[in-house]
Design a protein around this nucleic acid. Sequence first.
DNA 1: GTTAGCACTCTCGCACAGAGAGTGCTAACT
DNA 2: AGTTAGCACTCTCTGTGCGAGAGTGCTAAC
Lengths: 345, 345
Amino acid sequence: MNDLTERQKTLLLLIIRDHIESAQPIGSKRLVDHYHLNLSSATIRNEMSALTEMGYLRQPHTSAGRVPTEAGYRYFVSQMMDQAVLPETVQRTISHQFHQSGSDVSQWMTLAASILAHQSQGVSVVTAPHIEQIKFKHVELISTQGRQVLMILVLVGGEVNQQILTLAEPVSQERLSQTASRLNGLLAGLTVDAIAALTARSDALDRDILTLIVQDVRRNADRVSGDIYTDGLTNVLAEPEFTETEEARRALKIFGEPSTLKNLLDRTTTGDNIGGLQVLIGGEGVWEEFRQCSMIIARYGVPGMATGTLGVLGPMRMSYAKTIPTVRFVAGLLSDMVNDTISGE
Amino acid sequence: MNDLTERQKTLLLLIIRDHIESAQPIGSKRLVDHYHLNLSSATIRNEMSALTEMGYLRQPHTSAGRVPTEAGYRYFVSQMMDQAVLPETVQRTISHQFHQSGSDVSQWMTLAASILAHQSQGVSVVTAPHIEQIKFKHVELISTQGRQVLMILVLVGGEVNQQILTLAEPVSQERLSQTASRLNGLLAGLTVDAIAALTARSDALDRDILTLIVQDVRRNADRVSGDIYTDGLTNVLAEPEFTETEEARRALKIFGEPSTLKNLLDRTTTGDNIGGLQVLIGGEGVWEEFRQCSMIIARYGVPGMATGTLGVLGPMRMSYAKTIPTVRFVAGLLSDMVNDTISGE
DNA sequence: GTTAGCACTCTCGCACAGAGAGTGCTAACT
DNA sequence: AGTTAGCACTCTCTGTGCGAGAGTGCTAAC
């Protein structure tokens, strides 16, 4: 891997950087003209030939300039991975936006997706934090009319669900309030599984409600952890490599199908490397449809408690230098926010 | 308008229907071959020439077949508007999906958008119902830690908001419960404005909470009524008229920008024609970017109480016969559901 | 009013040539 | 040994010209 001479390294990085900007194959002459290297085009040709031999560059056809291969990009990314930092002004802007937004998880997600899409000019995707251990906090029962009761369920972490249940017979608000406060004492801090265990040995009214609580929490856990937020779907259409629509369509279609997308994200991330980014270049064997694309993915949250995934999809020649630190920064922010809400109790 | 002979009518409808299917200009010969009319191509040419003269058809160039003009489509739509009905099997499938879904507004919206996009193969958009008169129903105050209190607010219509407020000094859960139940008696059924009026003449704790209630409701009203759900963004890329990306991109971009989109919908719909559809053909002067597109829009909900908009964007040669009844049906379903939740109290 | 026939027009696809860009190789230079 | 100038070569891209095909409008006959 590191049998590259110093000159070859700088040349390779230069070529990739230029190609990311111009979206065109880079020739030796162009290189000499644009950057005043103290070298002739012939020398550069020799080096380029060597880099091609080594698999970092590729020629679309015999008489075109060079284009980075996946290996080339990977080298490029590995070089800049550590240094790339988001300018402080951008950091502040983003933080500001988050602090201005509401305290609702879905708002955070939407905002994160929007910021990622904007900054990177790619397609962003954010999954809501999946809460590993859901714990009961509080329940309210409000009679609405006849046998219909509105149940409000508060979970540790501040999440609130509501649900309407229909009882076998009308029950007064007073009795409902009593039941609620009794249950609150009984269930405080218990996990779903513990509550489910309790259900069996309870009397009629309690059983109805407990069953519903368990059901609701479980269903909701599925739904919320399945929630996927995307933004910038159309950004990618601006890229020159997607002028023939077919390619773009196939890639975008995947992003339009939440289930497939979730699957893809799950397969490529593990829960315990918070802070570490993954950069998938050219599909990297993961998904045939993304052969022309790259993805930058990160996990955020608190391992073992609540974690989610976020990432950006772009063309293979996306601006890694900008996107990588952005993804990292936003992941950090979201982690902090998740941490705050969880440790709140 | 109705100076069309019977034969011209059937011919016009035939041409449009064929063009919607084939996406190609329709020539006289093709028409004779495909549908066994008892006419020669020459006769048809004469009629086509007349239809062109009248502005219903157009020739892309001298020696191509005919293509419908906007006026042609409009005539087509006006002819089928009343008869088009959704097959009962489809109706049942859709109803079923709605009844299976949760009771959460945002789930309805997502589902509606998904169904519309799928059925029509176009881009769908649904705005959440805007509640005109928000009324208070119930509040709960739950102490979490120190001075932080979780406020849960239930509105008439079943909507539930939560919000964390920080008090000047710690207050016991008991006192909070008292306050909550007092407020519940006081505010039941009041509108936001009425509550705001009360705020002035209340003591410290009440005032804090009341202010927050008003704030929260107002902010939430803005947010929810601003919520826009879209689906099928990539469907439109499959259409042959969008193979050059530029056109598609501009149209899609608008659908990616919630604010612009909302503006557009608001401008083209009025709140009081629930049940009536609007069909905008070729942008219809509304929006330059949609020159190649059509939109089918409907309002749903209960006028004066809560209404929202939903619609489908597709190419001008979209399948009106299928999309119009679908939009109408889904609008009806959503209206029913809104009606149910509102009249629930 | 309808139809057959015909000349006309315009697009589309294809082949072909020339320009341009970039390469690899060789030989000369430092 | 490394670097450079020069040159022949290859391949894409662009524009042009031409024939095929499709469709039309018009005229004259039915």
